[in-house]
Amino acid sequence: MLKIEGLHVSYGPIHALKGIDLEVNEGEIVTLIGSNGAGKSTTLNAITGLAKVQSGDISFNGRHIANISPYRIVRLGISHSPEGREVFPALTVHENLRLGAYSRSDKRSVAAAYERVYALFPRLKERTGQTAGTLSGGEQQMLAIGRALMSEPKLLLLDEPSMGLAPNLVAMIFELIQSINQQGTTILLIEQNANMALSIAHRAYVLETGTIAIAGAAAELARDPRVKSAYLGG
């Protein structure tokens, strides 16, 4: 579904990605783990057109998508829930979600998307008229994921969905990610919480200073001594 080959990205003098190869197949949850500054968010930003691709290729269902505007990427069926939630604080929950479906004008499909998101996150339905800035951290995270789902993406990119959340909420978010996947959405997940990420993912990549260090089935990586010592706390 998504294929990245030899991807290079630089921010000024910083060479953030040094030729990475990565593949996501339809129906999978693939996780990308690694320490801070390894290039995880940059990888997602390159896919969605927020970061400029210097060289290499990104293709989605056979179509070359490197350096395409972010709004076109959304129309192609890729949705990105960014690190730090990035909700629209002064807009209501309802308006935030509406913006997630900005690329669609068919009222019926927008209504269906609302219904699906509210079914996944009943909490958001209760808060529908509230401004996003007044929500708790967990609720804002739900809103960020819900907003990304409003465009009914084929591929969902999630950047640190568990960041800053209490442990019980983390477990809940991971369950939700699994159920979104079971409903037919392919997921590329970035996580600091490598234990949790590997427990729900099918396959995993470990990113170290801009290159892929290890790749394989998630269950295998969870047993790999190198991964264990570096990312799973021994």
Binding site: T48, G49, L50, S69, P70, Y71, V74, R75, S79, H80, S81, P82, E86, V87, F88, P89, A90, L91, L99, G100, A101, Y102, S103, R147, A148, S151
Partner: peptide, 16 residues
């Protein structure tokens, strides 16, 4: 209003 509050999120929401 979305662009006013958060341009990056506006891009990601699919706004041109």
């Amino acid at each position: 209003r979305a662009i006013e509050q958060n341009r990056k999120a506006a891009h990601l929401a699919g706004i041109n």
